[in-house]
Every structure is written in structure tokens, then in C-alpha cells.
Design a binder for these strands. Structure first.
Length: 291
DNA sequence: CCTTGTGCACGTCAACCCCA
DNA sequence: TGGGGTTGACGTGCACAAGG
């Protein structure tokens, strides 16, 4: 049975510069027995040769110590000689619910992602002071493709509606809501809601939050094209895109906050485990001292 | 049942950033 | 350097719970 490492939050959003090059895929590996690492959207699968399965919650950060937290004891997986590369930071921890801190041999994961002294001051300052956008964070998380594809599709929908007019010009949308059918046998009836009806047209919104812009129909059947109306149309397009962008931004922000909360939980557990370990080491030390 | 407070999602504006 | 993307700020509407 393979061990599965599930990444809930791979990159610390507060890290100065979550370099895409230092993502989990490039920073985790095992040299012995050639385990297999696969990254998918938000999930990292770490396949190890051992016959164990572990659910792992981890926070792996490019410039900080990293934590891998498991629900089961990882001891059988991490046989002697295995190496986990956790970014370039030493002192990373694998923590289990049993409180077992796994001993790791941490090696350098390469210098390409490290902060070289020769880094240009400007770039360096940027990396230190600017918080990355949610987009970058999500890209680093690996989920950005979906979000971006959605945006792209939505905006291209709007543009293609404007340019190619896949909705016939003579289509009249008299109500504020109507239904269309799609699919076979009339399955998938969708409700269209018209919002923001203006002189330039109306935004038509249907089920799952997707929208497109329907230009107003002139008597002649052509899109009204005077300068003022063109301005209005451009404005509607801008508003539509910004509306969609704001929605996406909020979604990313929520994800970002979840990520932070997740990290807090993991770090709290790590802290607790380290305190326990320190305590037990102290006790051990005292015992040996008294002998 | 009505009012009030709270949380959430949304739309819009404006400032900033990035890239061609 | 202009256009477009991103995101903080602000206002609004809606849903829901609590209290009178």
C-alpha cells in the first residue's frame, strides 16, 4: 500500500516570496527505494515502498521550516536511509498524532530557490516586502489553473458573445429571467437571469455563476455603434470583467484564509509536540544525570 | 410579528501592479 | 506607457437569529 501525502496547504501565504520553483513537487523526494511523487491540483501524492498508508497534513514552505503531519505513525515508511527533501530548510519535522517526531535526514534541495547574496537589491526588496497576490499563491498551490481557466472561459464567453454573436441578433430577452434547455431530452434546464440591463445591453447570468453580455438589439438588427454607446458597451464589458474578477478574488481570499488557519493548526500541533519532546528529553537527561 | 444586529456575498470604484 | 488584471475599500441587499 502506498503512503499518500495529501497537501492541504503547500505554501505559506505569508512567506516573503513563494517561489514557484520551490513548490512541494520539487522539494520532496526520497532517495532510497525511489518513491514516487505526483502532484495534482492541491494534492501531493508521495508514494513510498512501504506497505503503509498515511494521511498527511502538511505545510511546506520555501523559506521556512516545514511540517508534515500525519494521522498514522510514519515510522514504517521512513526506514533508515530514506531522505525527505523539504525545501532547503533544515530542521523540518514530520509529526504524527501519536506524537512521534520522525527523525529526518534533511538535505539541501538545491540552490536555485535560495536567497543568494548576489540577488539584486530591487528584486530582494520586492520579495521581502510585497505579499504575493492570491493568484500567485493559488498558482503555487497548484489550483490556479482551474481558476484561471474559469476566468478565461468566462471572459472569452463574454467577448465571443460580443464578437461572434452566437446568440442571434434577433434574440429578444423581454423578461428578467427565462429558462433554456440543454442536453438531451430536455435535461438540464437552466435559469437565465438578466441583471444590469442598460442602454448597452444586459448581463445574462445562468446557473453556476456564469455570465455573458448580450448587446441591446437595435431595430435594424445591428449593434448600436455610435461613439457614446460604444463607450457604454466598453464600460459594461469592463464592469462585467471586474465583477467576475472581484468574485474570483474573494474566492481566492477565502482559500487563502483557510490556508492560514490550516497552518495555524499545524504549527500549534508542532509546537505542542516540540514542547512534549523537550519535556521528555529533559526528563531523560535528569535521569541519566542522577545515575 | 416586527425590529435590530450580524454575517455574507455582491457590485463598483480606485489605486496599484504587471506586461506587451 | 497604456491596457488590463488584482485587490482593498465602501455601500447595498439579503438571510438569519435574538429580543421585545
Amino acid at each position: 500500500m502506498d503512503a499518500i501525502v495529501e497537501e492541504k496547504c503547500q505554501v505559506d501565504p505569508l512567506a516573503p516570496s513563494p517561489d514557484p520553483q520551490t513548490g512541494i513537487a520539487s522539494s520532496v523526494g526520497v532517495t532510497n527505494n525511489q518513491p514516487h511523487l505526483v502532484t495534482a491540483t492541491n494534492i501531493v501524492h508521495l508514494t513510498l515502498p512501504s506497505h503503509t498508508q498515511a494521511q498527511v497534513q502538511s505545510v511546506i514552505q520555501p523559506n521556512q521550516q516545514s511540517v508534515i503531519q500525519t494521522a498514522t505513525n510514519l515510522q514504517p515508511m521512513l526506514s533508515k536511509g530514506n531522505v525527505i527533501l523539504v525545501s532547503s530548510k533544515p530542521n523540518s519535522v514530520i509529526q504524527t498524532t501519536q506524537g512521534n517526531l520522525q527523525t529526518l535526514r534533511v538535505v539541501e534541495a538545491g540552490d536555485s530557490d535560495s536567497f543568494s547574496e548576489e540577488e539584486s537589491p530591487k528584486k530582494r526588496r520586492d520579495l521581502l516586502t510585497r505579499r504575493p497576490s492570491y493568484r500567485k499563491i493559488l498558482n503555487d498551490l497548484g489550483g490556479g489553473e482551474i481558476a484561471e481557466a474559469k476566468i478565461e472561459q468566462t471572459s472569452s464567453d463574454a467577448e465571443s458573445e460580443l464578437s461572434s454573436h452566437s446568440i442571434p441578433y434577433h434574440t429578444v430577452l423581454p423578461a428578467t429571467a427565462l429558462q433554456i434547455t440543454s442536453g438531451e431530452g430536455g435535461q438540464g434546464i437552466q435559469t437565465l437571469t438578466m441583471t444590469n440591463a442598460t442602454a448597452g445591453g444586459a448581463i445574462v447570468q445562468y446557473a453556476q455563476g456564469q455570465e455573458f453580455f448580450v448587446p441591446v438589439v437595435a431595430q435594424s438588427g445591428s449593434i448600436s455603434g455610435s461613439g457614446g454607446e460604444d463607450q457604454a458597451r466598453k464600460r459594461e464589458m469592463r464592469l462585467l470583467k471586474n465583477r467576475e474578477a472581484a468574485r474570483e478574488c474573494r474566492r481566492k481570499k477565502k482559500e487563502y484564509i483557510k490556508c492560514l488557519e490550516n497552518r495555524v493548526a499545524v504549527l500549534e500541533n508542532q509546537n505542542k509536540a516540540l514542547i512534549d519532546e523537550l519535556k521528555s528529553l529533559k526528563e531523560l537527561y535528569c535521569q541519566q544525570k542522577n545515575e
